[in-house]
Design a binder for these strands. Structure first.
Lengths: 211, 211
DNA sequence: CCGGCCATCCGACCAGAGTCGGAGTTGGTT
DNA sequence: AACCAACTCCGACTCTGGTCGGATGGCCGG
């Protein structure tokens, strides 16, 4: 190992697919001005590795086993408020993006973009800037004020997205069917859906719920 | 470029994510007994590249823009029945797997497995064998005879999965609501669902429909 | 040629879903 | 204290969704 890492952008890579990690590392380590310091597919180990290496930038996938990438970002930022994050993920709806930005991500790159998008994002963020591809910022702009659901509504929505009936949801939450119907009505309004099936579909599209 | 490619397993890589292609190529080209001959993210170009290089094995993602990976496999096999395919994709339900095996894929590797799974699969397939990870063959074994839908039912299901009502589906297909209800009932039976929302959820899980 | 599968259609029935309007509780904000 | 938002509940009404039984014509394989 050479000792020429002075001045290089030091990157921690977090993605649950080993193959993707190899690809990212290959791209980054091929550039003279950046290098990877560690990689993992596990959110908890990511937190440990961050403490250990204190990288300039953490490259983070959002969909991870156990803990989500957003939670990992929040956890790290609690102790290191100046930590820099670039999200690298397949496009999975505006909600994930919104959450990630909210949690403090400074850039958002979609897998499937050319390599330059990734390295560009890293350089810009390291220089103190941001990087949001046009399709992403467009999606974000379309969020209306009441696309936010209350925590109870998210709870109901996730049960809806499992194909449960109102009665089952009522049992599960220990409330009456009438109340469930109220929540469902509000959800339909917020998602601009006309029935529960449509609500589930758009929730999955936007990343408000997962399979 | 050295001329030591004699005897190596020659691989064509097809995946729509540039980063993943880099990762795969890095892994394969690091082994002494295999090499990549070309790569692309486009199914149609994949067909051209196959004709041009006649690789020993084509490593194929199923989810591609425009044409699906399964269709690409079928197209190539029409003219080259002895062509070898290894599917490399994120797990997206048993239906994709079934279709791919049906179309002639000899191995199925899930992104997120360690590198060795990939190289193992390539070597085994090149030796004339097969490679199906336990979770995959388990999922395949659970297919009951009547989990197959007729083409009309698939048509209805994909409209269901868009959140359309029976009336809308009837309009779309130029049939009556009564007939749509019949199809929906059959679909519910086949998917072992009790209502349309559940049917949509399990269809998405199993890869019978997509967002 | 006939049985079976598929797609089509019908009518009637029941249960679930969704709407509307009204109303009480809590907890946090101003 | 006044207020607002979220959560809770109720009843009654409408309409979609789903089931059941029965029926037709086309198409394919034995």
């Amino acid at each position: 190992m050479s000792e020429d890492h002075l001045g290089k952008i030091r990157v921690l890579v977090v993605d649950d697919h080993p193959i993707v990690r190899v690809g990212i590392a290959a791209i980054i380590d091929a550039r003279p001005d950046m290098m990877t310091v560690a990689q993992t597919g596990d959110a908890e180990e990511a937190i440990r590795l961050f403490e250990q290496h204190l990288p300039d930038i953490t490259l983070m996938d959002l969909r991870l086993p156990k803990m989500s990438g957003v939670e990992a970002i929040r956890a790290i930022r609690l102790r290191h408020p100046k930590a820099c994050f670039v999200v690298l993920t397949t496009y999975e709806g505006d909600e994930d993006i919104y959450q990630a930005i909210e949690a403090g991500a400074r850039a958002y790159v979609i897998k499937g973009m050319p390599h330059e998008a990734l390295t560009d994002a890293l350089r810009r963020v390291h220089a103190g800037g941001r990087f949001l591809p046009p399709p992403i910022s467009r999606a974000l702009a379309q969020r209306t004020p009441d696309s936010d659901l209350t925590s109870r509504e998210r709870e109901v929505l996730s049960l809806l997205a499992q194909g449960r009936t109102n009665k089952e949801i009522a049992m599960e939450l220990g409330i009456t069917v009438a109340t469930v119907k109220c929540h469902v009505s509000v959800i339909l309004m917020r998602l601009q859906a006309t029935d529960r099936t449509q609500a589930v579909v758009t929730a999955l599209q936007r990343g408000l719920a997962h399979l």
